[in-house]
Design a protein around this nucleic acid. Sequence first.
RNA 1: GCGCCCGUAGCUCAAGGGAUAGAGCGACGGCCUCCGGAGCCGUAGGUUGCAGGUUCGAAUCCUGUCGGGCGCACCA
Length: 544
Amino acid sequence: MYFLENLGAELRSALSQYSTLELEPLWEQGGKFGDFSTNFAFQAARQLKKNPMEIASFLRERLLDRLSQKITVEVAPPGFLNFILQDEGMLQILREVFQKEEKYGYWDYGKGIRTNIEFCSANPTGPIHLGNARGACLGHVLSNLWDAVGYDVTREYYFDDVGTQVDAFVLSIEARYREHLGQPFQFPENGYYGEYVRKIAEEIASKYGSQLLELKEQERLKVFREEGLTIMRAQHQRTLSNLGIEFDVWFPQSSLKEGWLDRALSVLKERGYLYEKDGAIWFASSRFGDDKDRVVIRSNGEPTYFAWDIAYNLNKVSRGFQIIIDIWGPDHHGYVPRNKAAFEALGYDSKNLILIIYQIVKLFEGGEEVSMSKRTGEFLTLDELVETVGKDATIFFLLNTGIDSNLDFNLDLARERTMDNPVYYLQYAYTRALSIEREAQARGKKLPEIENISPTFGEPERKLIALLALMPQEILKAAVTMTPLRLANFAKDLAGEFHAFYHDHRVLGAEEKVEISRLALVKAIRVVLSNILKILGLSAPEKM
RNA sequence: GCGCCCGUAGCUCAAGGGAUAGAGCGACGGCCUCCGGAGCCGUAGGUUGCAGGUUCGAAUCCUGUCGGGCGCACCA
């Protein structure tokens, strides 16, 4: 049990002597008021309709009986509870960090609940661009977070290999293929003009030569489809892998043809939620809160994209997933109510279908917005971005704006000022801690067993240790509120405190007891930063 | 017209209803004989778009309003 988790349990138990109310305390730094602070009494007072001061005082009385002398509890108007630790308590926090080491900050909160997180899922009609990249990074880090707090996470990529856009893509490849071979060709309406299509066509040409021209159209297109999609999929996989993003499952939409679509629709039909109108089949999503009903089978007999979504969710449930998380771009926000509706209609609780929408990414170059269109082929690919600014800066930049806010990506800044990216600030803190440890080793300083340390911690150390104690809670918060940015901000705080500490105080060369205490602190900081960097998908460089 | 998101320092953005609204960049001024200066310290910069409401307390929640983004297909 983490230090603050334990203290929280004491608080809850103290509250239980006052009322039956169940409440989870939230901790923050105490600032000038102490090491830790909580608004627990306010939360309780709100629900119990009591005076916060009265509750805070009550809790303090009870806590004094239960806590050792090592923790001082103070009540500050209008109802804050502030905690001050002796050095022994501080040392206990460091001990926890060392004991849990690379698992410090991890929880079993999720109890191994099987969770499917689907993200990125860029259309295979073109390279992954900046917009997809935001979803990719968010999904990646959210997966890491959910994994860290104890969910059994499957990372999934939905590969849209069905539909009219893919058809246009296939025809575009064919046109380029013919062009490459000097044959007459007609570029399709709504085709894809990007250079990458040409490259795919050339790749196919070098594999098959001109023999595809001999095939019947249907068979020829089949080859272009299979080859083109295979190439694009490998490309997406490589692009994401370069960012350290790997998936457990690549799920082709076409595999839903094997019964899932029928199964999903027949469930809806049995339950009486489907009807026919104007030659199409409609799902009565408005009965579950959607604005209006939605078509699932078009009048030409083809299922809509939404129908595939319903089937996909049914498929996910059937594979044993209890929680389904999808991370979508802003253009999909209209699909949230209808998908939740369908999930309910299938007989499942839509609170287990978590649909996260992030906001748009805009690219600016030379002070002007650059339009990104897959059709015209004018866009910045994720590959190009990573090549320009590097893996870590890319991830951090895409995470460093709240999920609900538009993200304006300044390409000039990214190109010229990569050193200004806060990611280096974090990594530098880690590297710096590591280098102190290296230097200590070089000087023959050895950190004794933690039990044998009789610690001396001043104000600056206490602040840092308090942050270390808060870190597990921050991980949990970031996970349950789906906000990777929280963790990034916390990491910046920790790094900042550490940089300031380093500047003002010597570790090596201080008086022996102090030196040992600080060395232990530095090691703990290094461990915690390392864990955070890992969850954020960032590398922890030994040297920079 | 309807729906979702956003209006916070010159710029890009934080701040889960908490104590004096914070960082980075930009501007100005300091700090390396000493564990890594990709760092630190300081100065300047704010009516949190506006108006009401909810309560011990509002940038945060509610209502209205004004700006901006995105979406409103039998496309995906």
